[in-house]
């Protein structure tokens, strides 16, 4: 089972993730804000991290930048999810191993993105 961490502060969004990933081949861990996300990442090795961008406190893009600066987490595949346009976050592409998932998305799109990211890391 692949380890999946979702950092998302919107409780309803968390429900969508849970619903979509239920019964799939992943162990899903949820974090409700950036700080909690960091804590979880340090506790366990994750195969993929999904980050909401606009969160109270530490935002997803800041968390992502922190990860890429730390040699230990430099390679963790990341998916950034947001209702914002993809082009707003193109600058993060340069930091590597990241893709963008625009909200709304459905189950197929989410699974597809996760698979692509996991394969990209092989």
């Amino acid at each position: 089972m692949k380890e999946l961490l979702i950092v998302e502060d919107d409780l309803e969004m968390q429900e969508f993730y849970k619903d979509m990933l239920q019964g799939e081949q992943f162990t899903v861990t949820l974090a409700s804000n950036g700080e909690e996300g960091i804590k979880k990442i340090k506790e366990k090795k994750y195969d993929i991290v999904i980050l909401d961008i606009l969160m109270e406190g530490m935002t997803g893009d800041r968390l992502f930048a922190l990860l890429r600066r730390d040699s230990q987490y430099k390679e963790v595949p990341v998916i950034m999810a947001s209702a914002l346009d993809e082009k707003t976050y193109q600058c993060f592409q340069a930091l590597g191993n990241v893709s963008f998932l625009e909200k709304p998305f459905n189950k197929e799109k989410l699974l597809d993105e996760i698979t692509k990211r996991l394969e990209g890391n092989k």
Binding site: F16, L84, P104
Partner: peptide
């Protein structure tokens, strides 16, 4: 960006809720 986000987020979630309903 903020206004866009404020309008897009509920619409996105409504769409996702409908998707959840269908599934």
């Amino acid at each position: 960006r903020d206004v866009t986000h404020e309008l897009k987020t509920p619409v996105a979630k409504i769409e996702m809720a409908i998707d959840m309903f269908e599934r």
